[in-house]
């Protein structure tokens, strides 16, 4: 087990290193930040001075090492647009994205797993067919369009919910959260639903496929023969057996939801990380782009690492091998 952890950690480090080179070269190949930083009618002297100040006159490999060294200390430089340290900027936007993503993924799981298990348990029932039909729709329809429809229906036509923004926030541990106030929750509802629909469809399909497969096995036949009620069979045996793939997906989805949050945050003008990255791309704010991309890469590598670990812990064969 320890060997496995070390091997995976080693691989994760190589991936992060490769990503940092790619992101650095990629972002620095796009446009010239000098054109953004100073006005075109500045003198040659000022130009040269600014270039030297940001270290842009150095060869690329030296710039990379400076960047990498600072990154290890958590320093991504200053944002060109906001004139504040990027790390601070990102940390200030993180809670908004985090609460949205957690609400969406947890909600999708709590709703999707029971629905999927039902659809797998009674796969010929009309209700099950409706559930599956809707899940296909949830898969194929691009989430940004669903967001538009949600706004049109609930914000514009019915006027029940606000169309954008975070609403009133309340402070907890020195961080502002929307989920602590009624107004904040009202603002969060539509974006969270928008973000959750795709995950919901996926959870339903996975839970259904797993349930259908497991209901046919001898485990279930014996459990029934032992006189257990159908409810107990479903909760104690089926749910436990389909839990392994679902946990994997839950972990991976937490990360990919962060990616989808870019779309949702743009539509609902939710002031989180996704909105920040879109804004920084349009304004060529390099340090923010680099930091965001590195953060996402790090997050994904970490999630993959923990999912591998959880998998190893949940798989009885691996557990027995250790004992």
């Amino acid at each position: 087990m320890l060997g496995f952890v070390i091997q995976r950690l080693w691989q994760a480090m190589i991936v992060i290193l490769a990503m940092s080179v790619l992101v650095f070269c990629g972002v620095f190949a796009v446009g010239n930040p000098i054109d953004v930083l100073i006005s075109p009618d500045a003198t040659q002297d000022i130009r040269a001075q600014v270039i030297a100040q940001y270290g842009l006159d150095q060869p690329l490999w030296r710039q990379y090492f400076t960047f990498f060294g600072r990154m290890l200390q958590g320093d991504f430089g200053e944002s060109f647009v906001y004139n504040m340290p990027v790390t601070q900027l990102i940390l200030s936007r993180l809670p908004a994205t985090l609460e949205l993503v957690l609400f969406a993924v947890v909600g999708a799981s709590l709703l999707g797993i029971p629905l999927g298990m039902y659809a797998g348990y009674r796969h010929d029932a009309p209700a099950a067919k409706i559930i599956m039909g809707l899940s296909i729709l949830g898969f194929s329809v691009p989430s940004f369009w669903i967001g538009l429809v949600l706004i049109m229906t609930f914000a514009v036509q019915l006027g029940w919910l606000p169309a954008g923004g975070r609403g009133t926030t309340a402070s907890l541990f020195g961080i502002e959260w929307s989920f602590l106030t009624i107004d904040g929750l009202r603002h969060m509802l539509l974006p969270a639903i928008n973000l959750a629909l795709f995950k919901l469809a996926m959870m339903i399909r996975l839970a259904r496929a797993g349930t259908r497969e497991i209901m046919l096995t001898d485990t279930i036949r014996f459990a029934r023969a032992a006189g257990l009620s159908e409810g107990t069979v479903l909760v104690r045996h089926v749910l436990r057996l389909i839990a392994i793939p679902l946990v994997t997906i839950f972990g991976l989805e937490l990360g990919s939801t962060l990616a989808f949050a870019v779309v949702t945050e743009t539509i609902f003008s939710w002031p989180g990380l996704g909105k920040l990255i879109i804004d920084s791309i349009t304004s060529l704010d390099r340090p923010v782009m680099v930091a965001y991309l590195m953060l996402v890469a790090l997050l994904f590598v970490m999630i993959n690492f923990f999912v591998d670990l959880a998998y190893a812990l949940l798989d009885p064969r691996l557990r027995r091998a250790r004992a």
């Binding site: 990629g26 972002v27 190949a29 796009v30 991976l252 990360g255 990919s256 990616a259 989808f260 870019v262 779309v263 990255i277 791309i281 782009m289 991309l293 996402v296 994904f300 993959n304």
Partner: peptide, 15 residues
């Protein structure tokens, strides 16, 4: 292991 939309978004943003 990365979502396709994220990869496409990053590349499109870089290019």
């Amino acid at each position: 292991s990365f979502p396709a939309i994220l990869l496409a978004f990053v590349i499109a943003a870089l290019l």
